[in-house]
């Protein structure tokens, strides 16, 4: 089952999907999978994606309206929460990428630490105002699409991207 985003037969309508790719408390692995999916799709994606914000890919990032914001990783600090709230306002659709964003784990493993381990990491939590608990995306903002998996499931991601490209009339 190939996907529109990968088929060269999908006829771009000239419009581009305005996207942002954001990573918070995570190992950034779905970002690596995303760059690997580019290997066979970069020519199509260059025509249909307008990357507004992606710190890992570019230096001049603009945080303005987006059609779709892809958010990877769990939320470990108030700074993370403020950012995703801002993104939620700017993006028509938010896609949670990977297990950490969808369910919190494993980046939220400190939530289950026993007293002894918590005491050990407390100085760092205090010094750099980490939140008491690490939260998954849905606990802070509404999420339109979820791409689970650790790293994200490639097929689920490609299917989601396809339906978004169709929904926003980027490909006919």
């Amino acid at each position: 089952m190939t996907n529109k985003a990968t088929q060269s037969t999908a006829t771009p309508t000239g419009k581009k999907l305005r996207i942002g790719w954001f990573s918070y408390s995570c190992c950034e692995d779905s970002t690596i999978v995303f760059t690997e999916l580019m290997n066979e799709r970069w020519e199509v994606w260059k025509k249909v994606l307008d990357v507004r914000h992606a710190r890992v890919l570019q230096t001049n990032n603009v945080l303005d309206e987006m059609d779709v914001a892809f958010i990877e990783g769990a939320l470990a600090s108030q700074e993370h929460i403020d950012m995703v709230k801002k993104i939620r306002v700017l993006a028509k659709k938010v896609v949670a990428i990977g297990a950490c964003a969808c369910d919190g784990m494993p980046s939220a493993q400190r939530n289950d630490f026993d007293a002894e381990r918590l005491k050990e990491i407390q100085p760092i939590l205090n010094q750099f105002n980490y939140n008491k608990n690490v939260q998954k995306l849905e606990e802070v903002i509404t999420v339109d699409v979820k791409v689970p998996g650790c790293p994200m499931n490639e097929q689920t991601f490609l299917t989601a991207l396809d339906s978004l490209l169709t929904e926003f009339k980027i490909v006919a």
């Binding site: 470990a76 600090s77 493993q109 400190r110 381990r117 990491i121």
Partner: peptide
């Protein structure tokens, strides 16, 4: 980058 505390998590 925010730490995810693997040294503690592995025990």
């Amino acid at each position: 980058e925010y730490k995810r505390f693997y040294t503690q998590a592995m025990r």
